[in-house]
């Protein structure tokens, strides 16, 4: 029970323990705690920032999407317009081509008609001559009556 030199020994031990704790135990543990706190705070801040960025990105995406939609609608309208134009154009060209073909065909027909008339005229002349020859005998002079014959054949046309 008595107080004795143990007191001094205990005080020395206590002082050593406190010194050791102060020097080697408290700082590293406390620092690691503080550091972890900071890390967690940073992490939370980063998460919050990330969320904000997501919202921003979503907004941006919506805008882009809307733009794209508008753009595509525009393109579709343009394409339709162009298609109509092309159809109209081709219709027009086809019509023209058809008219041209018709004209050419008509021209050919006329030509052929002329040729047929010509050959018919020649043949009729020959036929008329031979008929006249047969009627009049061999009296009629071909050179002499050429004028008359021409008149007759021209009446055919």
């Amino acid at each position: 029970m008595s107080i004795n030199a143990t007191l001094i020994g205990q005080m020395i031990t206590f002082a050593l323990l406190v010194w050791f704790t102060m020097k080697y135990i408290w700082p590293p543990l406390f620092d690691s705690l503080e550091e972890r706190k900071k890390k967690i705070a940073d992490g939370l801040a980063a998460a919050e920032k990330g969320q904000e960025q997501i919202i921003l990105a979503e907004k941006k995406a919506k805008i882009v999407l809307k733009e794209a939609k508008d753009r595509s609608a525009e393109i579709v309208t343009l394409a339709q317009k162009r298609a109509n134009e092309i159809v109209e154009e081709s219709k027009y060209t086809a019509k023209q081509e058809g008219e041209r073909l018709i004209l050419a065909a008509k021209g050919q027909i006329d030509q052929e008609l002329q040729q047929a008339k010509e050959s018919l005229r020649k043949e009729i002349t020959v036929l008329a001559l031979s008929a006249a020859q047969q009627i009049l005998g061999a009296e009629i002079d071909k050179a002499k009556h050429q004028n008359i014959l021409n008149k007759v054949s021209s009446q055919l046309g």
């Binding site: 031990t13 050791f20 704790t21 135990i25 590293p28 543990l29 690691s32």
Partner: peptide
Amino acid sequence: GGVFIWFFKNAAEKATS
């Protein structure tokens, strides 16, 4: 005191954030 120091020193040496 040694037990206390040993335990905490051990923890402090391996301390990581």
